[in-house]
């Protein structure tokens, strides 16, 4: 089994780079300081390619491919910043803002939100599609945490961290399409969940104000993510 890992050389935005064959375009780009926007992806969790922010163009491939799940290949020529891509990325963000209720000025994570900062970085100046204004609940039944569905972007980071890292699998997604919603256990109140260990991992990986800790001032609502690379590294070592 122990075959040596092969190294592939490729071009990203006309720069020569190289990476192991089991690495993704996103990983190689990051190693080389090339910025590709992401939202659903979080290092340490299984990538799912769902938010479509990280789409890139590859010469000779007609489809756009998500950098977070696409493995590098020899001779690939990847383009990450074309005008078309930037337009699509802004539209993805606009759709996310229109989907639920995002009013940053009154949000608990105002200033520490990945969706918000992504909008700034990618130059999203306005939302051209109408807001949908759905009526969604806020569940504050957990003694320490709150889930506010109005801010959820369905990235499923919480689902993955709770399953893959904590091993509790308290979260999952119910329904489908526009009616999808994250749930705890049998769609019961989080506070009544039999499986939640209150570890707080989901809160820390949530990119938005959908999951937050009770009773903290906004300035302390920074999400702590250092645990994730650490835990995944420790587990890899043990294998």
């Amino acid at each position: 089994m122990n075959q040596p890992v092969r190294v592939k050389t490729l071009k990203i935005d006309d720069r020569d780079v190289s990476g192991r064959e089991d690495e993704t375009i996103l990983e190689i780009a990051r190693q080389n300081g090339i910025f590709i926007p992401t939202l659903c992806n979080l290092q340490g969790l299984t990538p799912i390619g769902a938010c479509r922010l990280c789409l890139v163009e590859i010469k000779g491939v007609s489809r756009l491919l998500p950098a977070c799940v696409t493995r590098v290949e020899e001779g690939m020529e990847v383009y990450t910043q074309s005008e078309r891509l930037q337009k699509y990325r802004r539209m993805v963000l606009e759709l996310l803002f229109s989907e639920r209720n995002h009013i940053c000025s009154v949000c608990v994570v105002n200033g520490h939100c990945e969706l918000q900062s992504m909008a700034q970085v990618l130059g999203m100046t306005h939302v051209s599609v109408p807001y949908r204004f759905p009526r969604l609940p806020v569940d504050a039944s957990h003694e320490r945490f709150v889930v506010d569905h109005n801010r959820c972007i369905l990235c499923t980071r919480c689902v993955r961290v709770c399953d893959e890292i904590e091993g509790a699998h308290t979260w999952d997604v119910m329904g489908r399409g526009i009616d999808s919603r994250v749930i705890t256990d049998l769609n019961q109140a989080w506070g009544e969940s039999e499986t939640c260990t209150s570890c707080g991992k989901c809160v820390n990986v949530c990119p938005t104000g959908a999951l937050f800790e009770k009773g903290k001032p906004v300035s302390e609502r920074l999400k702590k993510r250092q645990f994730l690379p650490y835990l995944t590294m420790m587990r890899e070592e043990r294998r």
């Binding site: 699998h169 119910m174 256990d185 049998l186």
Partner: peptide
Amino acid sequence: ALQYVAKALRVPLSKVYGVATF
């Protein structure tokens, strides 16, 4: 029924609910 199936098949509750509503 969902609780019982979840236990018997050792599938997380939220996953059972997720599948049943999908």
